[in-house]
Design a protein around this nucleic acid. Structure first.
Lengths: 211, 211
DNA sequence: TTCTAAATAAGTAGTAATACGCGTTCTTTT
DNA sequence: AAAAGAACGCGTATTACTACTTATTTAGAA
C-alpha cells in the first residue's frame, strides 16, 4: 500500500481526488492538508510515502513546504500538482528535487501512474510537461542561468503591487537610482520591454503570486 | 434524480467531483465537459437539470457558455465554480442570471446543498460569498454601476499584454489621444493609480485572463 | 426630441519610466 | 590575489504615462 497525502487549498478538489484514489487497490490516503503549514504538520504526524501537493496555497506555499520536506524527510516522494505548464516553474521544481510534476488537466490514469512511478524511486513528469522542457532545450539560447537575485525579487514583488520606483526606494531604503538600476537589469534579464510585461512574467513564472 | 453536468478544464478535478457526487443518492452525472464548446454540445445532446461549471476555461469561457445556456435553455440551473471570492466577479455572475456561485474551497456538503437548492428553483451563494457581497453593500458608495465598456475592454486587454498607448492606437486604429482618454477613464473607474494596478485589477476581477 | 453616455480627438504640464553609460563597494568564488 | 557578480549610486536623454481640460459625433434611452 502506498501511503498518500493530498494537499490543496480547494477542499472539493482534495476530496474528489481522495474519492478517486481510494478506488485504487494499492493506494491509501493517510491525510489531507489545505495549506503549507498543515502539510508540514501532517508529515510530522503521519507515516507518508507520497505527497500530492498544489504549488500555490495560502499560509505557506506548496513550493516552500516541498523545500522543507525534501531536506528533512528525504524518503518522502513529492509530486507537484499544477495548472501551469511553464518552463520556468517546471525547471524550478526539477532543481528543487521534486519527484514529479503533473498537470491538473491530466487524467486519473496518469496521476496513478505518477504515484506508482515516484514510489519506485523514479521521477515522473507529464507528457505535456516533457514537451515543454524539450522545446526549451531546443531553443537553449534563452535561459543560460538566468537567475533573479534576492534584491531583484523584493523589487519585482513591489512592482507587481503597482508601486513606483520612488515608493519602492522608500520601502526598501534605497535611492531611486538604485531601484531604477535593478529595474533596468530585470528588464534585460527577462527580455521584457516594460513593467507590465515584467509583471506578467512574474505571474506566469510564479515568481510572484497574484493575491 | 437530479441530472448533473460537470464542466472544468482540469480533468482530475472533474473526475474527482463525479466520484464524489455519484455517492449521493439523488444525483446522477449525465455528462462532463472540459471547455465551453463541449459544454454547449453536451447541453444539446443530454437532458440536464443542473450544470456545475468553472468560469475560466479554454476554447470558450464558462461565463460565455453560461450566458448562452441561460438564454436558450432557461430551465437548466447553472452553478458557477470558482476559486475567486471577489465582488466584481460574483456580481457579474449574479446579474447574468446564474443560479449559484460556489467556491472551490468549499466542502462536499456545501456543494451538494447548492445542487439541491438550485434544483428547487432557489438561488445559492456560498456563505463566504455572501459575506463579500454584504461588505460590498455596506461600503455601497464605491461600485455605483461601474461598468467597463466594450472599447475599454479591448484597450485593457492590450494594456495587459504590455502594449503602450501608441501600439494600442495602431492596433485598434485609434489616435493616441483617444487611447489615453480611455486609459484615464479606466483609472478613474477602477480607482487604480497606474497601469500595473489596472492590470492587477483586470486579472483579479477576471476581466482579462492571464494566458 | 431631448438627454445621456460612449467614443472620439486634442491640448498642456508634470511625473514616471526606459535606454544609454559610468562608476564604487562588498562578497564569494576561483 | 584576482575575477566575477551583486548591490548600490548617479547622470543625461528620450519616451511613456498621468492629471488636468475641452469638445465633437454618434447611439440609445427617457
Amino acid at each position: 500500500m502506498i501511503k498518500v497525502l493530498v494537499a490543496d487549498d480547494h477542499k472539493i478538489f482534495v476530496d474528489g481526488l481522495i474519492s478517486l484514489l481510494t478506488l485504487e487497490h494499492n493506494i491509501s490516503i493517510v491525510a489531507k492538508a489545505h495549506n503549507g503549514n498543515e502539510l508540514i504538520e501532517c508529515v510530522k504526524k503521519y507515516d507518508v510515502d507520497v505527497i500530492l501537493s498544489d504549488i500555490n496555497m495560502p499560509e505557506m506555499d506548496g513550493k516552500d513546504a516541498a523545500g522543507i520536506i525534501i531536506k528533512e524527510y528525504p524518503d518522502i516522494k513529492i509530486i507537484m500538482l499544477s495548472m501551469h505548464n511553464r518552463t520556468a516553474i517546471i525547471k524550478e521544481m526539477e532543481q528543487m528535487g521534486v519527484h514529479g510534476y503533473v498537470l491538473k488537466s491530466c487524467d486519473n490514469a496518469e496521476l496513478v501512474d505518477a504515484i506508482n512511478t515516484v514510489y519506485l524511486g523514479k521521477r515522473y513528469f507529464s507528457k505535456e510537461v516533457k514537451i515543454v522542457l524539450d522545446n526549451a532545450k531546443v531553443g537553449r539560447n534563452d535561459d543560460e542561468e538566468m537567475l533573479i537575485t534576492a534584491r531583484e525579487l523584493s523589487i519585482i514583488k513591489l512592482l507587481c503591487k503597482g508601486q513606483t520606483s520612488k515608493e519602492i526606494g522608500l520601502n526598501l531604503g534605497l535611492s531611486v537610482f538604485t531601484v531604477d538600476t535593478h529595474r533596468k537589469n530585470l528588464l534585460i534579464k527577462t527580455k521584457c520591454k516594460n513593467v507590465v510585461s515584467l509583471v506578467n512574467y512574474a505571474y506566469k513564472n510564479n515568481i510572484v503570486v497574484l493575491d
